[in-house]
Design a protein around this nucleic acid. Sequence first.
DNA 1: AATCTAGTTTATAATTATTCTAAAGTGAAA
DNA 2: TTTCACTTTAGAATAATTATAAACTAGATT
Lengths: 135, 135
Amino acid sequence: MKKIDILKKLRSSGLRPTKQRVEIAKFLFEREKTFHFTVESLNKLLIKKLTSKIALATIYNTVHAFKIAGHLSEVEVRGKKTYFDTNISNHHHFYDSETAELIDIDANDIIIQKIPKAPNGKKIKNVEVFINLKN
Amino acid sequence: MKKIDILKKLRSSGLRPTKQRVEIAKFLFEREKTFHFTVESLNKLLIKKLTSKIALATIYNTVHAFKIAGHLSEVEVRGKKTYFDTNISNHHHFYDSETAELIDIDANDIIIQKIPKAPNGKKIKNVEVFINLKN
DNA sequence: AATCTAGTTTATAATTATTCTAAAGTGAAA
DNA sequence: TTTCACTTTAGAATAATTATAAACTAGATT
């Protein structure tokens, strides 16, 4: 994803392309593979990469704004920190609690044959499968 | 579940049946249906039910001890608070984010046809399906 | 280009869930 | 009934996240 596309992405979702947002967006979206992170891990990586520091609160704000805009998804993992994923397509996860690491599973690699009806007036928003790993 | 069984349950898992543990165990396990709760919600309910207050730290300790002993399971829901479930059999959940409510899904009500192999030297510990609901 | 302004960033304080601490209390073995 | 390892307790500490409010800035308006 090129700089011009980063700007487009931000503007089209109503986010003013500030210096900080552009830096974070470049870091997150200019990559081939999907990327899993927490705000803390992202902060550390940004400190290494950038010369000027971005305030932690800004990273929280930005990640949240990207999530609202649909550019990031939040992953259903229990634990202290919240995980985010640059893969916003419908998919599933392995979770290795030893290493606190997430691995994407393509939606096509899991087929659910039988599923219950949603209760009383509710609808199914999405189905997420979690495969917890051990050694 | 009767009082004598509560005592057995505690003793057999190496937990000294103190006044507080017995009260909490009675509250949690003397019921027909499975029960979902957070430490906060449990605390509020216990305050209503009991005459003497149990320290919040004790509720944390006890719930944790019950979980280690296998009498409770911790549910994988993203969010600030940790959810526990008196249903310790292998099963799945609906999650209604509007009401922050969990509903059990019997393991037999979901059949997974295809599942990927665990990565490099890892094994599958368990598979948990989450069905997120909307209105 | 200078001005303006709503939206943004920032440092720091506040909040919230949870864990830690260490002193006082207690089940149950001897 | 004495003893002691295990528990409970109140309150402090920790850690992730959110709120605050002052300073800053992208981009529209003049």
